[in-house]
């Protein structure tokens, strides 16, 4: 399975694990808030995904390097400080270079700190594994998160506003406004997770 079970962790497997087999949102059900809130359009979703990926890679790498220095009693607090540092870096970079994305994501950039995926990977993976494999794990989990957000964003944007990555496919008036509203977010995520569960149950039957 994942790299932690073996002595020699398989980098490629770790990467794929994050993207598909243990996809943070669709399989582990972590990080719901940013998934629902920032997937109103595909571009927002991908932007949020990349910001989170950057934080995950940085925090996983640093925590893995420091894993022998951090006393286990105050480890959660130390992880939060590391994560918050990277979030601040990403926040300032976005504000300086991509202000339009910074404005549309708004509140949810500082909230990457409390995204359960980041803290969850720090605790479950980076604190037990070497720096390189932790970095790959961060990249895989981040890409998995980005993939989910991109799928959600594409569905909601297409059904809600009739656009794909900002390009008009059919006239705006025919779109169901509902899909870009909060209730459309819940509905889309529910259907996406149901589809994943369906595919997984089919896969298990096939294996038998």
């Amino acid at each position: 399975m994942s790299g932690e079970a073996k002595n020699k962790p398989n980098l490629f497997k770790t990467l794929l694990n994050g993207i598909i087999f243990e996809n943070p949102v669709m399989v582990l059900l972590l990080g719901m808030c940013p998934t629902l809130a920032t997937s109103t359009s595909a571009i927002n979703g991908v932007g949020m995904g990349i910001a989170t990926t950057a934080v995950l890679i940085g925090s996983n790498l640093v925590i893995s390097l420091l894993r022998k220095l951090i006393p286990s009693k105050i480890r959660i607090a130390s992880y939060i400080v590391v994560i918050a540092t990277f979030v601040t870096i990403v926040q300032l970079l976005l504000q300086a270079y991509i202000p339009s994305l910074y404005n549309s994501l708004g509140l949810f950039i500082p909230l990457i700190v409390v995204n359960c995926i980041v803290l969850g990977r720090a605790e479950a993976f980076a604190s037990k594994n070497g720096p390189i494999v932790s970095l790959v794990d961060g990249l895989g989990m981040g890409l998995g998160f980005t993939l989910t957000l991109a799928i959600m964003g594409t569905i909601r944007e297409f059904l809600g506003a009739g656009t794909l990555f900002g390009m008009q496919v059919y006239p705006n008036e025919f779109g169901a406004m509902l899909m870009t509203m909060p209730c459309g977010g819940f509905l889309t995520l529910g259907c996406v997770i149901a589809a994943v569960q369906f595919i997984r149950s089919r896969g298990k039957k096939g294996a038998k």
Binding site: L29, L178, M181, P182, C183, G184, G185, F186, L187, L189, G190, C191, I193, A194, A195, Q197, F198, S201
Partner: peptide, 22 residues
């Protein structure tokens, strides 16, 4: 439905609740 058991059906009901709050 089997595929909707657990979290998915909860999300769909949350969607209806959100519709009310709209």
């Amino acid at each position: 439905p089997k595929a909707f058991e657990g979290i998915p059906i909860a999300l769909v009901s949350a969607s209806l609740l959100a519709l009310c709050f709209m």
